[in-house]
């Protein structure tokens, strides 16, 4: 595996070709969707946090999910990845329904997520973090774990793969340190590398740049583009507009739980609805009802 820097925002590759012709309006159908969601609703008490009528994610693209605070981005992430229940609606991933599947089952289908607040397994070493993520280990079965010879080879090959990923994410020198001793940015890198150990066909990154220093942001962006170029679909939540415009192939805008706009970066930049939503949100930030705050609070609390 290589770590060649890729051109940012480049619309190369066959898969992205399809997305260039799609007309930019909410809920539009994509030529080759990997993820299709229909009528997703999730409410807390009286508050509807997510109300997505239709959303498709094109295979092999980098799709950004943006929206003002409390727009329901994290809730949508949680719902899609099986970390939260949905009230109504259904969604499919690579043609298979995901409704009612638990988080680990979704991950096994190839849709792997990261978290807004990094969840490095702090008292495990970096290498252990990586090895833990490898799928289909026979040594992870309670009784299978006693048959060392049966999983030793698998462990070795996983270790090789982990080593390569760590190399690529420039964490190899830390492999025997406990993950708790990593810096915040390194934890983000570790989390992304760990997600790749699962061999996902789609990664869902929840604010991968939050709290990362600018130097690391560059390299994180490179990693994300490299993922796309290898054929992995990326869906990510982010706040930094420059980052989003620079790297995304497609942008979905969420406000108050609904998809209010989607399209290529240039479409979004000039979309009046988006500007209103953002400006409006900024405008009466102070005077906003406690409802959104509560929703945010609930989201934070999970």
């Amino acid at each position: 595996m290589s770590s060649e820097p890729t051109q940012l925002g480049g619309a190369g590759g066959a898969a992205q070709g399809g997305i260039a012709e799609v007309s930019p309006h909410p809920g539009v159908a994509k030529p080759d969707p990997i993820l299709v969601a229909d009528g997703l609703r999730r409410s807390f008490g009286g508050l509807t946090a997510v109300d997505v009528e239709r959303l498709q994610v094109q295979r092999g693209t980098i799709t950004a999910l943006i929206g003002p605070n409390g727009a329901g981005k994290s809730t949508l992430f949680n719902v899609l990845t099986g970390f939260d229940r949905v009230d109504t609606g259904s969604w499919t991933f690579e043609g298979g329904r995901l409704n009612g599947l638990a988080g680990h089952q979704v991950a096994r289908r190839g849709m792997v997520r990261t978290f807004q607040l990094t969840k490095a397994l702090t008292r495990l070493t970096v290498m252990e973090n990586m090895l833990l993520a490898a799928p289909g280990q026979s040594g992870e079965r309670l009784l299978g774990s006693f048959l060392r010879w049966s999983w030793a080879r698998q462990e070795d090959s996983n270790r090789e793969r982990a080593e390569a990923l760590l190399e690529r994410f420039r964490l190899a020198h830390m492999r025997d340190e406990i993950a708790g001793s990593l810096s915040g940015g390194q934890r983000k890198l570790l989390e992304m590398a760990r997600a790749l150990m699962v061999r996902p066909s789609m990664v869902m990154l929840d604010e991968p740049m939050a709290g990362v220093n600018p130097v690391l942001v560059e390299s994180l962006l490179e990693h994300i583009s490299a993922l796309r170029d290898e054929g992995t679909t990326v869906l990510f939540v982010e706040h930094d507009m420059d980052v989003i415009m620079g790297i995304s192939d497609w942008i979905v805008v969420l406000a108050e739980g609904r998809v209010i706009a989607e399209g290529r970066p240039e479409d979004i930049r000039s979309d009046q609805v988006v500007i209103d939503a953002y400006l409006g949100a900024h405008h009466d930030e102070a005077g906003r009802g406690s409802g959104d705050e509560a929703a945010e609070g609930i989201e934070e609390a999970r």
């Binding site: 807390f44 008490g45 939260d84 609930i298 609390a301 999970r302």
Partner: peptide
């Protein structure tokens, strides 16, 4: 699990 008067949270 949240009890009779508890707020529903996970």
């Amino acid at each position: 699990p949240q009890g009779l008067l508890g707020r529903r949270e996970r």
